[in-house]
């Protein structure tokens, strides 16, 4: 019972703060709203039995990605501010832009409504460090090793892109 109450509470928080994240004008406020969304999602992951994923989620998103965003916004200062919504789009255009995601949501929802009732597995899944680690180092060893390559390429690309050009 407690689980269900926590689930609905943090689902509501995640939806409200993600809406704030996309509609707030100031980038810093939007970023902090995203932080609340991410932490609510972390709690939902725990409720669904993904313990290791929760911890990685907090470390990678709240720890690394948000700080990276914060640094870039800080570096750019006032240049990062956005024009108000109604100056960017005319009202009919804005309406159609909002309609497209809503229609996509309704298509997904109708697909979900037609499928048979989804229930949780009879035995609860436990994504502990041991269980995930065992899978990662046996069945998923090749993809796991390739992720290190992807991260290395990401670092190289970021350094090569953001390097100061020699002034000519």
């Amino acid at each position: 019972m407690t689980e269900i109450i926590l689930f609905y509470l943090f689902s509501g928080l995640a939806v409200i703060f993600s809406l704030l994240a996309i509609f707030l004008k100031s980038p810093i406020k939007a970023l902090l709203s995203l932080l609340v969304t991410l932490l609510s999602l972390a709690i939902i992951f725990t409720l669904l039995g993904a313990y290791l994923i929760t911890m990685i989620h907090i470390v990678v998103y709240a720890g690394a990605i948000l700080v990276l965003f914060l640094f870039v916004i800080m570096l750019q200062g006032l240049g990062a501010s956005d024009t108000p919504l109604f100056q960017r789009f005319s009202k009919p255009l804005l309406f159609s832009l909002l309609l497209a995601p809503v229609l996509l949501f309704l298509i997904f929802l109708s697909a979900l409504a037609r499928s048979p009732k989804l229930l949780a597995a009879s035995e609860k899944v436990h994504g502990t460090v041991e269980a995930i680690g065992r899978l990662l180092f046996t069945d998923y060893l090749l993809p796991f090793e390739l992720t290190s390559f992807v991260l290395l390429l990401g670092v190289f690309a970021a350094i090569a892109l953001a390097k100061k050009e020699p002034s000519s």
Binding site: S18, A21, A30, L31, A80, L97, P101, F105
Partner: peptide
């Protein structure tokens, strides 16, 4: 959440907010 992200992607004109 996916639809909200898609709305944000469409209505924002700031590169950082699109990434967000």
């Amino acid at each position: 959440l996916f639809s909200i992200g898609l709305i944000g992607l469409l209505i924002r004109r700031n590169l950082l907010m699109i990434l967000l």
